[in-house]
Design a binder for these strands. Structure first.
Lengths: 243, 243
DNA sequence: CTATGTGAATGGGTTCACAGCT
DNA sequence: AGCTGTGAACCCATTCACATAG
């Protein structure tokens, strides 16, 4: 289905960041070689990635920083406002809410939700935490585009389903579990006989078209452990070609 | 270089998590089809991923949960102690330090480091924050395996270099920048601020062999924006085969 | 002579079909 | 029969060489 590699999108984000940095340093021009070196990939890769979306450079010259930056912003959809709710306002949720950089590019936190009575009603970063039962109406009334999911793992599937039911178009999942259209885990410790309890067909719970991206700190930690023990399996961050 | 796909390692972490969950539910047996459904991949994929590391199942029967779990723990290197330092103890660093789940599998936070006078000396999660200038000695004396990097983006490269110089074998980078063996960005007219620490030769100023994994929340947010606008480019989380 | 843009080749990862145990 | 394990086919992403434009 993917005519553009998903890895290319990740790299585009990196290129954009490098362009921002160059801009603050008043560097006005760059090249695929330069970008490649800074991004830790090859120059071929940079040119191919950019070519998926258009022709942004000048042959023999390279790229003009502000122009390429503007084009990448457009390609990535960062020239519009994104309304975001955070579900789960514990330590992690609050760290996310307060992390600088999200407000660049018009990502706006418009609502915070939790179930804990200790949190509901509290004020975090100029927003009042609401109970998750108010999520549905809120999403409808405020044109929420995406939800950031920062609840404990055992709550993640249900909270994700609530976001989908409410109508968000994307979920950034920080919980260390797979969320998705699976049936709500009806497999309690009940012997191993096939209790085919495929009950409950929810109402408008349609995951079709909902995008899920995962940001999984614990998984990263475990991958790191593995690659420390098996360094030869990792394409090292040592570039050395940028041909 | 990679005879085992890096994506396979990520999936192994997911399988392990599912097995843990099954174990808490007293489910003793599973199958590639079952794991596939829960992990959101195909059963082919599960079997192939496991086959990279051995033969863990019984033909005609499936997998025994505790056995497969034990084997994955071993494969991923989670049956040993990992000593971790956190560099950067702001909101994000503290959220990481307090996030539950890291202490499973013997990931132990043994040191916290920062440069801020407001933080150094403070106590966070039964550890006293130390100044980053003490990092080198600390890593040597405490056999630190990995560093979690949670400093602001403009400090990330230098802090990463400090970790490498100190001799850690892996870095989990939370900062939204590419860190690596590049020269320290001295591209603006800036006299060398004689960081006289030219102790670059003894232990390891060398990035060779150092593993870097990135956990980048802002990048995930931007990828999510892109895929919401271009849903057809994303292999959706809707499984539907698990053949 | 420079550096981009792109069709073609290469290579790696996923999918498949079936061989092999139970 | 049922389900794992695996060589082979397939497909997609990266790499390359070179045509193209400045």
């Amino acid at each position: 289905m993917a005519e553009i590699p998903t890895a290319a999108i990740s790299r585009l984000v990196t290129y954009l960041r490098i362009l921002e940095q160059l801009e603050t340093q008043d560097v006005s021009r760059t090249s695929s070689t330069d970008l490649a070196e800074r991004a830790g990939v090859t120059a071929f890769q940079v040119r191919k990635d950019l070519a998926y979306f258009g022709r942004f450079g000048t042959r023999g010259m390279g790229y003009t920083v502000p122009i390429l930056k503007r084009e990448l912003v457009r390609v990535l959809g960062l020239n519009q406002t994104w309304n975001v709710v955070i579900v789960g306002v514990g330590r992690l949720g609050q760290a996310i809410a307060n992390y600088p950089g999200a407000s660049d590019y018009q990502f706006q936190y418009v609502g915070l939700f939790d179930v804990s009575p200790e949190l509901v009603g509290r004020r975090v970063r100029d927003l009042t935490v609401q109970h998750i039962s108010d999520l549905r109406d809120f999403v409808r009334d405020h044109r929420v585009d995406m939800g950031f999911l920062a609840v404990p793992p055992d709550r993640a599937q249900d909270a994700a389903q609530a976001l989908v039911n409410a109508g968000v178009r994307g979920i950034l999942n920080f919980a260390p579990v797979v969320i998705g259209p699976r049936p709500p885990e009806g497999r309690t410790a009940e012997g191993h006989s096939h209790n085919a309890a495929h009950a409950l067909q929810e109402s408008g719970d349609d995951w079709r078209g909902v995008i899920v991206e995962n940001v999984d700190f614990l998984a990263g930690m475990k991958r790191l452990a593995f690659y420390i023990l098996n360094p030869h399996l990792k394409d090292s961050p040592v570039p050395e070609d940028t041909a």
